[in-house]
């Protein structure tokens, strides 16, 4: 069984590799790639905690995934289908939610 600690262990190892790269290499581009490794190691631990913090509806904590997403360019979001809850604010905004929420 894979636990949260396994993901944190792997994430810490990847962060250490990136940290050692920043400390040991002189090439600017390699240092940039090592910074990317550290950034992605922290992203991995964020997503692992997001999966670990499941709320009472059985939904993972999406706040951490928003943070991960914010370090990337943004594509156009897809319109969701068939989720009845959390539609209060969307229905108020007059979006076509009522047709899909009956599914």
């Amino acid at each position: 069984m894979v636990t949260l600690g396994d993901y944190l262990f792997v994430s810490g190892l990847l962060f250490t590799i990136g940290f050692a790269g920043v400390l040991l290499r002189r090439n600017l581009i390699i240092i940039f790639m090592s910074l990317e490794l550290m950034l992605n190691a922290s992203n991995l631990s964020l997503v692992a905690f997001s999966r670990f913090r499941v709320d009472s509806l059985g939904v993972p904590n999406y706040h951490a995934q928003v943070f991960v997403f914010s370090s990337s360019p943004w594509p156009r979001p897809k319109w969701p289908s068939g989720w009845p809850s959390s539609s209060r604010s969307t229905a108020r905004a007059g979006r076509p939610m009522s047709r899909t929420s009956a599914v």
């Binding site: 894979v2 993972p60 999406y62």
Partner: peptide, 15 residues
């Protein structure tokens, strides 16, 4: 890890 609900929204929806 705790189990997830089967009828949860897409993560695209939540995010």
């Amino acid at each position: 890890f705790p189990p997830l609900a089967a009828n949860r929204p897409d993560d695209v929806h939540g995010i």
